[in-house]
Design a protein around this nucleic acid. Structure first.
Lengths: 134, 134
DNA sequence: TATTAACTGCAAATCATTTGCAATTATAAC
DNA sequence: GTTATAATTGCAAATGATTTGCAGTTAATA
């Protein structure tokens, strides 16, 4: 369940940021698509917005904890998510699947623990293709 | 507990790879240092070996599951570890603590699943300092 | 020791991300 | 509404990590 658009815009404003076209557009795409996207992915959906501005918008959203980041294969994937969950990404085709998060961590000597679980694998259809190639 | 040097060299050989100077050197550094290193880190220890060769050696080691990778801040950190484990990093001071990994994941529709768990938090001594400041 | 495919070093290419700067724009005050 | 102003944008160039092509070198095997 991702935060409502309006709620996000309000958080931005409260934090002293202007509600600009690139920021709104990035929020809208992340709200609409239900899976993690790279800055380049977002730029493909929003070709009229400069890639640098997309990066800057994503930076702001991440700093405010409105968006989360996951790093896979030297790329950062961003997504909006108030209730924690994880994703598994196919190494071959980039297909993404959501997974509920049931984890809590209690670790000696640490407080305020946050976790990021990155799962990668090969999805069924890629596995089939790869088998056929051999 | 990391695989013994000799054992690693044998695995390489068995997999049909030559035992070259760059490969040996990378294995030695990863064995010696007890924490995750970037290719650039390794190159700093081994300036006479070309960075590209370090990347190629790390690739081989990762493919053979001799080394593992973790991505943090757009850099890949490599380490040798036969028994999987994770790390928790203090957000304040960077202190790292190792954690055993007891996880296996079975996910519908995916095979060859690898996971990377990144934990961050505040370590005890930083938590104390932060409390005193307030 | 000779042969040969695998491997290296180098330089250049690529890809993701960041930055400097002049022009634009959202906001708040009038 | 207009105006003033600092924040933000788009663009182009810079940076940093990683990859690649290629000619020369080397480990392994006979």
């Amino acid at each position: 369940m991702s935060k409502h658009r309006q709620q996000i815009l309000t958080s931005l404003k409260q934090a002293g940021y202007k509600l600009t076209k690139p920021r709104r557009a990035v929020i809208d795409i992340l709200t609409k698509k239900q899976h993690p996207l790279t800055a380049a992915d977002i730029h493909r959906y929003l070709p009229s917005i400069d890639l640098a501005s997309i990066y800057r918008a994503l930076d702001v959203l991440t700093k405010l904890n409105i968006a989360q980041v996951e790093q896979v294969n030297n790329s950062s994937y961003y997504y909006l998510d108030s209730t924690l969950h994880h994703h598994i990404i196919c190494e071959q085709c980039g297909y993404k699947q959501c997974l509920p998060c049931k984890h809590t961590f209690n670790i000696n000597n640490f407080v305020n623990i946050k976790h990021q679980l990155t799962l990668t694998g090969i999805c069924q259809s890629c596995a089939i293709k790869l088998n056929q190639q051999q």
